[in-house]
């Protein structure tokens, strides 16, 4: 499970960053004003999901196939 951002909806307000208790797990990329999630440190606690004012974060199970869907949603993962 990992937090997945709806980038069309994400406004970069950083409420999820405030909610997240783990270091470097979720942060705002300021040059683009989008939120980036680190898959390896995310423990899918759901705090960011609850905090997001526009409900644009979901916890999803298998990131690979979802990322390949012809969706307008994007996800960042750690190398």
């Amino acid at each position: 499970m990992v937090a997945k951002i709806n980038y069309e909806r994400c406004v970069g307000c950083e409420e999820c960053v405030v909610a997240c208790a783990r270091d470097h797990c979720i942060h705002l990329e300021e040059s683009t004003n989008i939120i980036v999630v680190n898959e390896s440190t995310c423990n899918n606690c759901g705090a960011c999901v609850k905090r997001c004012p526009f409900r644009c974060i979901d916890l999803v199970g298998d990131i690979g196939p979802l990322a390949r869907k012809p969706s307008m949603v994007a996800t960042a993962v750690k190398s």
Partner: peptide
Amino acid sequence: HEIITPEISNFIASPGEKY
């Protein structure tokens, strides 16, 4: 450092320093 995948880059045509 995290990487930005092509799925994210779909949304960003001009990542840069012009925040």
